[in-house]
Amino acid sequence: MLKIGKYTFNSRLFLGTGKFPNFDIQKEAVLQSETDVLTFAVRRMDIFDPQQPNFLEKIDLKRYKFLPNTAGAKTAEEAVRIAKLADASGICHMVKVEIIGCDKTLLPDPVETLKATEMLLAEGFTVLPYTSDDVVLARKLEELGAHAIMPGASPIGSGQGIINPLNLHYIIEQSSVPVIVDAGIGSPKDASYAMELGADGVLLNTAVSGAGCPVKMAEAMKLAVKSGRLGYEAGRIPKKTIATASSPADGLLV
């Protein structure tokens, strides 16, 4: 059971909702993932096309916890405004602070992320900041009172997987709040690796929505997260530089 702030979750897989081929595939993928947490972005409605369908029509709103992101914000103040707009919907539970500081790499702005986290905590939000894998920044976010830390595995949408497992290990080791590895996951192997490192959860989007078959990939990610977590809890064997036979040395026939 994963606990973030006052919320508890059965699933350790958080699923983004962007860029699925269509709403039917998305709905099926969400179901297959068995996620409890869906992320969304906040955007203006199109007043010239007000009948545009919306994915929220397709799902049971009571079944999920909603984690809106502040994507699009470049400053802490903009992020706070987006968070407040999302909160006014009455369906949100938490907020993912996402303040991009570099258009090329989509890496987060550490200074504005810290500021926004502090401001939103003061307003009573349950705050999950998306951050780089900077160990000191993660510690400072936790010291501010962030309810979870969400370090990226690699740049958003890159599918590069975990490019600095050592940093993630340090962050996981030092954190007393949950660590959700967010962004950059490409394959089930990456999700499982994050969980084996001791992450409390994984947030991914493009790895499922951009897969050849998003529905199958959603199931694969569900199993990978479960498998990685079980492996972490079981405790893997230490790596050795010498071979050790698993068959007995006694009773040999030759």
Binding site: G16, T17, G18, K19, F20, Q26, T39, F40, A41, V42, R43, R44, M45, I47, N54, F55, L56, F66, P68, N69, A71, L85, A86, A88, S89, G90, I156, G157, A183, L203, L204, N205, T206, S209
Partner: peptide, 25 residues
């Protein structure tokens, strides 16, 4: 707040934002 929608009067020059949730990660 929702309950304020029908009591909030409009005047020329007002600016309104209608916002929704869309897919995002």
């Amino acid at each position: 707040k929702k309950e304020d929608y029908d009591q909030t009067k409009l005047k020329p020059g007002d600016h309104i934002e209608f916002v929704q949730f869309v897919g995002g990660g």
